[in-house]
Write a protein that binds this DNA or RNA. Sequence first.
DNA 1: CCTTTTCTTTGGTGATCGACAAACAAATCG
DNA 2: CGATTTGTTTGTCGATCACCAAAGAAAAGG
Lengths: 213, 213
Amino acid sequence: MATRGRPRTFDPDTALDQATALFWERGYEGTSLSDLAQAMGIASASIYACFGSKAELFRQVMHRYGETFGAPPRHALGAAPTARAAIDAMLRATADQVTRPDAPHYCMLILAAPTGAVENHEIREFLATIRRSQFTTIRERLHRGVADGDLVRPAQSVDSLARYYTTVMQGLSVQARDGATREELDGVITCAMAAWDALGAPSDSSAQHRTTM
Amino acid sequence: MATRGRPRTFDPDTALDQATALFWERGYEGTSLSDLAQAMGIASASIYACFGSKAELFRQVMHRYGETFGAPPRHALGAAPTARAAIDAMLRATADQVTRPDAPHYCMLILAAPTGAVENHEIREFLATIRRSQFTTIRERLHRGVADGDLVRPAQSVDSLARYYTTVMQGLSVQARDGATREELDGVITCAMAAWDALGAPSDSSAQHRTTM
DNA sequence: CCTTTTCTTTGGTGATCGACAAACAAATCG
DNA sequence: CGATTTGTTTGTCGATCACCAAAGAAAAGG
């Protein structure tokens, strides 16, 4: 792999990090190319040469973002021994991430481009697709719990339960955005997990209140 | 109150509705003044004469939006006899609103401007303030439930319970945005209400012991 | 009628948007 | 070395941004 031609004078990964910081602070539409070029320390033409376009740069930012910011919740979901522990750990890890003191208090995947001009609908749909895959990942973890026997098939369907915890996770971003503290999010999560004990019926404690609705 | 001068040739309320439709579809930053002028059927100068600025127009749009789109959930919260029924009805009404076939599937208050350019931070904070007031309204309804005796002070604090249901409500917008159906949101809400029975203590059984919080 | 008041239309402000062409610079290859 | 390849710099493209001044139009007051 010969490296012909003039070598790049900047590190693409570092530049991506700087672009991430800006997109994170201002969202997709709120960030301009001249802002990006200045923050990345290069001319806008170099952005096009290296990353293609503003949209393509954002996609690469989100890819990197998913592997860093998104890693703890994803890892928690997969590593915990039971479905209940997995969901709980995923939510706590999310709360950790969206209240980190060194970053804006929300998840880019959810709030960086939920709406926007017509010409940016592709970016919005790009993020929506990732969010939908999060839901299916959570759902699969619950199904695994049913297979493992640590989650009794709930009165509500597994689909509903998965969507419910996805909803809570996404709501955490809005809460953090509005100034909720890590401790307050912990209280939210504890409430959310109380539904598990009412619905999912853990195998260790036999069903108690099954009435309602 | 004499009406001197040339009368207005358009109805401000109708124009506000048309502006609402556009802001709703594209968010705050994604909507341009020329788009608005065209949709409202007037020149941009008339927008400034009547509404002041883009930001001021958006504030008036949100005021009207809160009195129309926001009315059903707010009314449900206040009208239901018990705290539990109030929260349940509020969430179902929210699900109704964010899946209406005649409007974009999300709540503007939550997703119209969660991020954006630095010069639009005031708009973002304007919406955040309204969202925080929603939380306090929900909290007050729960406190009323405690006073009424239909909600036993939960193991988790009333604050946490209020923030939890606020989080779920906000998450519903993201879910609807990503294509969740009304029925799927119903399943989410049923799961969310299951937490009530685990935390808040049943409403029918008379208040048991008053544990300190 | 004329004056005053208010709104609308016209037209354009400077700034900034995303994107790129052309010229220049720095590396490898033969 | 010269030729080739690749990245950077410079400058700018047409479009669009939010906004507004100036002039024309339509009403009421005198």
